[in-house]
Computed example of a mutant assay.
Amino acid sequence: MDPIEKAAEEILRVLMAEHWARFYYAVEQDGVVYVNVPDDVLATMRETHPLLADFVAGLNGQPIDMESSQRAVGEFVFRTFEGGTFPVGTVAKTFDSKEFARLMRLFSVWLSGHEAEFDAEIMPFSLWESLFTAWRADPAVQRFQDSLKGGGNPAPPAGETIH
């Protein structure tokens, strides 16, 4: 896996954690939406995903909207990965890469295809991650991923095998 692909996967994990936190733990108070992940949930997350738990803990109690979400993810990714995990310049190149766009498209398709399942019960982040990984391994999804690599705007995979 080249550095851009590896960075795209790591950045996607941060985005997934941010989305998971908003999906289950966004609360509105006086017209402002906040993230409020319970301490016990963060403690469990720290056992399996300590870095992501630190990120989510940083969101806790903060007002959140599209702009602040993007800013929080970007700041965390640059602070955490740039010049350490990945060479300087890799993170910016990754955000602008086709590989990252492809992963974001996959994540979006996965979310929209499983929203009812996610609404049925609060799932730990580790389950979200394993479900996404298993979904990506499905042959129909593999073909869809391959078609995204080829360019264009293919239709998402259909059928019961991917949902």
Rank of each mutant, 00 (worst) to 15 (best):
D39L: 12
A92C: 04
H163S: 15
Y24C: 05
D40M: 13
A43C: 14
A158C: 05
A43M: 12
D54P: 07
G74C: 00
S108G: 13
S69D: 09
E117W: 12
V109Y: 02
W110F: 11
P63I: 08
I162V: 15
G83Y: 01
V91H: 00
V91G: 01
M104Q: 12
Y34K: 10
E129F: 02
P124E: 14
V14P: 00
P3D: 15
L106G: 07
R105E: 11
E18Q: 07
F118V: 12
M16Q: 09
F95I: 03
E67M: 11
L59T: 01
M1K: 05
M45F: 11
V14E: 00
R105G: 03
E121C: 07
S68Q: 09
R71N: 09
K6V: 04
M1Y: 09
G151T: 10
F95D: 06
E10H: 12
V33D: 09
V109N: 03
V88N: 09
Y25S: 07
P157V: 15
I11E: 01
G152D: 06
D146I: 03
E9C: 09
A8H: 13
K93Y: 04
K98P: 08
L12M: 04
G58K: 08
A158F: 02
F100E: 03
T133D: 08
V73P: 02
A43L: 15
L131F: 08
G113W: 07
I11S: 01
V41E: 14
F95P: 05
I4Q: 15
Y25H: 06
V109I: 09
P139M: 14
A21P: 01
Q142I: 10
G31M: 11
T85V: 09
Y24T: 04
N60P: 03
Q70K: 00
D40A: 14
D65E: 13
W135D: 12
G152I: 03
S112G: 08
R105L: 04
K93W: 04
M66I: 15
P157L: 12
L106D: 04
G61A: 01
A72W: 03
D54Q: 13
L106T: 04
R136G: 07
R102G: 06
D54Y: 06
